[in-house]
């Protein structure tokens, strides 16, 4: 089962922002992605810092979502998608032949752009992951996991009285927090978020952002966003993608106040994109 647990902690020498460097949870090097004949990512090197929020920004079609989906091999289910390069989780290649993709996705969870609760009850939405992975010994334990996950997603108070209502009956913001609860219910190590707030109103967005900030205590988070302010607010590291290339990567503060590349500056200040 625990095929990757025995390895060393991530190396400290990984390239990253200057100053105090937190250990890298995931290390990506030389990543090329093709959709059929089209190359979507070109030679991307980037590390995802442990217990930090890393934001991926860039204009539409720049490859940031593709990059995110490489981190839990979600691209496997897309027809004609080819990935080459190295993606390490705790130092182990997640594209290695012997790695089990189902186990990988249990370690690297994902929240999608459009809230996608299962058309089942709120309870079953959260309980589904723990159930298929056998995380609860009995019904009481499962109840506990569901309640905890909903609490951490800041949704418990709102749905406590109607756990058997359909997940799809919630409002958009609630649905997205339900999806976050579903993702954290199986205690992943990394959570990938693909524009989690793009379908939400500002109030719901603020709630999800608060949530992301709180979750980084326990999880490593990578988030794709189109919202510059959001990237600045929630992330500690920011990567700017353009035309399938990683243009600049560093501490969020540095990227937003003093970018090294002119393209980064132009994008952040709204001159293109």
């Amino acid at each position: 089962m625990a095929m990757t647990m025995t390895t060393m902690a991530a190396t400290e020498t990984a390239s990253g922002p200057a100053g105090h460097v937190p250990p890298s949870k995931m290390e990506v090097s030389g990543l090329d992605v093709f959709y059929g004949a089209n190359q979507a990512l070109f030679d991307v090197d980037m590390n995802v810092a442990e217990n930090r929020v890393s934001a991926l920004i860039g204009p539409s079609g720049c490859g940031k979502s593709t990059f995110l989906r490489c981190l839990n091999r979600m691209n496997d289910i897309i027809e004609g998608c080819k990935v080459s390069g190295n993606v390490l989780l705790d130092g182990n290649d997640i594209y290695a032949r012997e790695l089990d993709v189902v186990q990988l996705r249990a370690r690297v969870g994902m929240v999608f752009q459009k809230p996608n609760p299962f058309p089942k009850s709120i309870y079953d939405n959260v309980a589904y992951g723990p159930r298929i992975h056998g995380l609860a010994e009995n019904a009481g334990e499962l109840d506990e996991i569901v309640e905890n996950s909903l609490r951490r997603a800041g949704l418990f108070e709102e749905v406590a009285e109607r756990m058997s209502a359909s997940g799809t009956s919630l409002s958009g913001g609630q649905q997205q927090r339900l999806c976050i609860a579903r993702a954290i219910a199986i205690s992943p190590e990394v959570i990938l978020m693909d524009e989690p707030c793009s379908a939400l109103d500002p109030i719901a967005t603020a709630k999800v952002e608060e949530l992301i900030d709180a979750l980084k205590q326990d999880f490593t988070i990578a988030i794709v966003t189109h919202n510059m302010q959001q990237a600045a607010r929630v992330s500690q590291y920011t990567a700017f993608f353009h035309l399938g290339k990683l243009v600049e990567f560093g501490e969020t503060e540095a990227i937003f106040t003093n970018p090294e590349e002119k393209r980064t500056q132009d994008y952040i200040t709204g001159r293109f994109g």
Partner: peptide, 27 residues
């Protein structure tokens, strides 16, 4: 069946057979 449901199931670590039997087939 919308791809978002498949992605959601894959995303919590359901095996391909579980994705089909638990989610896609009932829908």
């Amino acid at each position: 069946v919308p791809p978002s449901i498949r992605e959601a199931a894959h995303g919590v670590g359901a095996s391909p057979l579980q994705v089909v039997t638990h989610h896609v087939l009932p829908l």
